[in-house]
Deep mutational scan, measured.
Amino acid sequence: SEEELEEFAKEVLRRGITIIVNGIRITEVEIFVKVLREILEKR
């Protein structure tokens, strides 16, 4: 749901943790923004 997305976004921003994806360091915020864009483009 959109509320869950908002909560996830807030949690990500609070933690600001960097994770490893395919050997490249990407912040969770960047991943969230990318996923959010993909979701919005599909609408």
Rank of each mutant, 00 (worst) to 15 (best):
S1W: 15
S1V: 10
S1A: 09
S1N: 09
E2R: 12
E2M: 14
E3W: 15
E3Y: 14
E3H: 12
E4D: 09
E4G: 09
E4I: 12
E4H: 09
E4M: 11
E4C: 14
E4N: 08
L5I: 06
L5V: 03
L5G: 02
E6P: 03
E6W: 15
E6V: 15
E6H: 13
E6Q: 12
E7A: 14
F8S: 01
F8A: 02
F8Q: 01
A9H: 02
A9F: 11
A9D: 01
K10L: 10
K10F: 07
E11K: 13
E11M: 12
E11L: 10
E11S: 12
V12A: 07
V12D: 00
V12G: 00
V12Y: 08
V12W: 11
L13Y: 05
L13N: 00
R14G: 07
R14P: 00
R14C: 02
R14S: 09
R14Q: 05
R15L: 10
R15K: 06
R15Q: 05
G16I: 15
G16V: 14
G16Q: 07
G16L: 15
G16F: 15
I17H: 09
I17K: 07
T18E: 12
T18D: 06
T18C: 10
T18Y: 13
I19D: 00
I19E: 00
I19A: 01
I19L: 08
I20Y: 08
I20S: 05
I20V: 08
I20T: 08
I20E: 06
I20W: 09
I20F: 08
I20A: 04
V21G: 02
V21I: 14
V21T: 03
N22D: 07
N22R: 08
N22W: 14
N22V: 05
G23I: 12
G23L: 13
G23Q: 04
I24F: 10
I24D: 03
I24K: 07
I24V: 10
I24Y: 08
I24S: 04
R25G: 03
R25T: 09
R25A: 08
R25H: 10
R25F: 06
I26N: 04
I26F: 04
T27H: 08
T27I: 06
T27F: 09
E28A: 11
E28S: 15
E28Q: 10
E28L: 11
V29N: 01
V29H: 04
V29Q: 02
V29L: 13
V29C: 10
V29Y: 10
E30C: 12
E30G: 09
E30H: 13
E30I: 10
I31G: 06
I31S: 10
I31T: 09
I31A: 14
I31P: 05
F32S: 00
F32E: 00
F32I: 06
F32V: 04
F32T: 01
F32M: 10
F32P: 00
V33Q: 01
V33D: 00
V33E: 00
V33G: 01
V33I: 13
K34G: 03
K34C: 15
K34P: 00
K34E: 04
K34N: 06
V35G: 01
V35Q: 02
V35C: 06
L36G: 00
L36W: 07
L36R: 02
L36H: 01
L36E: 01
R37K: 12
R37P: 00
R37I: 07
I39G: 04
I39M: 10
L40D: 00
L40V: 03
L40I: 08
E41V: 07
E41K: 12
E41W: 11
E41S: 13
E41A: 14
K42P: 04
K42L: 11
R43C: 15
R43V: 11
R43N: 07
